[in-house]
Design a binder for these strands. Structure first.
Lengths: 136, 136
DNA sequence: GTAGATGCAAAGTATTTGCGACAAG
DNA sequence: CTTGTCGCAAATACTTTGCATCTAC
């Protein structure tokens, strides 16, 4: 594990309140991709006085600071995950909702190439695969 | 141009009301990716009595019937486009909002391969590139 | 001490839905 | 006819915001 979220906050001059520490800790410990409601639930168990508004404000702040990544998978709510150095994309099981993270250099390079071909410099991208588990 | 939206509706047993005909026509004539509000504006110019609820219901119905594709690009509203045989992905200019459609067989194949590697059969996918125009 | 953060409730957006009137097949 | 659609307004889901209070630095 690289830098902790708290270290990142310090580095970016983000004020470290108790609420933010709790949210940071929960996100660090989460290996899934919780939406704000779910995160709020988890956070409430630690400190029931934290409001959902603070959770919304904090994930947005963390996203802008490059600490969390926001995903808008099919079906409504935005979901978050901690952003570590290694970029990855997502394969979503449309039956179970399970999310598998994967990295593929070849696809990354191909994307750059496509943007380039159209005269663009790639700034960001989103790749989501939706699939069903194979029998065999 | 392949089948018209009206033909597709008949083929799928979707009842063809005046409102649906108008919405279908507008979508067929649109080369951009309007959101529901924008579509409602265009539709209103033809028949000002059509309600936005009907537009929402119709795009959803058309999407479920495989007539329209729904996209949730960054920043809020869902946007729609007519679904023709050729699948394509999108390159979005983050400065101007311009959307460029592209097709890349290599990337399509790679996606299948990745899903396969993880034991999945690919059902759907979403690839969006966000970029800025290069100086040249 | 001061700028910025929080909690609360109210306000925004985007989208969906209940219901009585109406139209397509 | 009968089933499904429409328009309307109210409801819902998610997210943001104004304001008075409080807290990290």
């Amino acid at each position: 594990m690289s830098e902790s979220i708290e270290q990142k906050c310090l580095a970016k001059g983000v004020k470290l309140t108790d609420q933010r520490k709790i949210i940071a800790k929960i996100m660090s410990e989460s290996n899934d991709h919780p939406d704000v409601d779910e995160l709020y639930n988890r956070v409430s168990k630690v400190d029931s006085k934290i409001s959902i508004a603070t959770v919304y404000r904090t994930v947005k702040l963390f996203e802008e600071s490059g600490i969390l990544a926001k995903h808008e998978f099919k079906g409504g709510k935005a979901r978050y995950e901690e952003l570590n150095e290694g970029h990855h994309d997502h394969l979503i099981d449309i039956k179970s909702g399970e999310i598998i993270e994967f990295v593929d250099d070849e696809i990354e390079k191909l994307q750059e190439k496509i943007a380039d071909k159209h005269g663009y410099r790639l700034v960001d991208h989103k790749l989501e695969l939706y699939g069903v588990k194979k029998k065999s």
